[in-house]
Simulated scan of single mutants.
Amino acid sequence: MLKEERQAYIIKQINLHNKVLSSDLSTELNVSEDTVRRDLNELAESGKIIKVYGGALSKSFHYPFTEKETYAKDSKKEIAKKALSLIKDEMVLLVGGGTTMIEIARMVPKNLRATFFTVSPLVALELVENSNINVILLGGQLSPNAHISVGSMVVNQLSEIHVDLCFLGTNGLSLEAGISDSDMEVVQVKKAMLKAAKRTAIVSIAEKLDSVQKMKVCNLSAINYLVTDLDPSDPALEGYSKYVELL
């Protein structure tokens, strides 16, 4: 694989999953970690990614208020429109973090009356602009990678609430492995969010379909809705329709 092809693959994986590890990229690309580190350094120097110890982070995720940096923005807007069809007046909702969740928050109708719990300060800032919405930010240690509250404090708070609907993003989504992630602390928060909700919707761009991360959040059977940028009749979603309602 040429360096340009290798670096294009790296950028795509970072944008899809927010964070990648040099060791994982080395295995996937069948090159040495030194080669991967050189690629990451070049991409960071050109301003395409954020280099961190052991890997890299997505600029799309870490600068969500910069419109031009958001990866697959049109797809995420389409997902947000579909997700909002699940929300009714007077609902109590729980939402996670990420750029798709920010798009949902931006599109919440001004006349909607609802209560939103969130573990994301960035999502909370968007939601609070709507004067009809009651916004409750669940606090804890702020993850520098995921930009959400993590740790025992937020898990305990989640154990004390019961919501009508939860919106969750995901880093991995497959028929066999279900919902998965690459960060153990984030996984624990997502599991607590699932327990707090009567119904849960996973929101994800279609590019993440059939991808698997190292740590499992739940089986597809634990999810009620899957909201993607594809039409529900798309062949790529055929297997998923056996487990969840597609939007």
Results as ranks from 00 to 15, higher is better:
124 A>V: 04
217 V>F: 04
40 L>T: 05
197 A>S: 14
91 M>L: 13
160 E>Y: 08
215 M>Q: 14
135 V>C: 14
190 K>W: 00
58 S>F: 03
16 L>T: 05
17 H>Q: 13
122 L>D: 15
103 E>F: 12
243 Y>T: 10
216 K>C: 13
47 G>V: 00
128 V>S: 14
160 E>W: 05
234 D>A: 09
210 D>W: 11
172 G>Q: 01
213 Q>L: 11
156 N>S: 15
128 V>Y: 03
91 M>K: 10
143 S>G: 13
231 D>G: 00
21 L>T: 06
160 E>T: 14
94 L>F: 05
112 L>S: 06
123 V>A: 11
115 T>D: 06
4 E>I: 14
196 A>L: 06
64 P>V: 04
131 S>Y: 11
141 Q>A: 12
113 R>Q: 11
119 V>S: 06
54 G>H: 04
215 M>W: 15
86 L>G: 10
221 S>K: 12
110 K>D: 15
78 E>R: 13
228 T>M: 12
146 A>P: 10
187 V>L: 07
42 E>K: 11
3 K>G: 12
139 G>R: 08
221 S>R: 07
222 A>F: 02
179 I>Y: 03
63 Y>E: 10
183 D>H: 14
16 L>N: 07
3 K>L: 14
165 L>F: 03
120 S>F: 03
114 A>C: 14
131 S>R: 14
91 M>T: 01
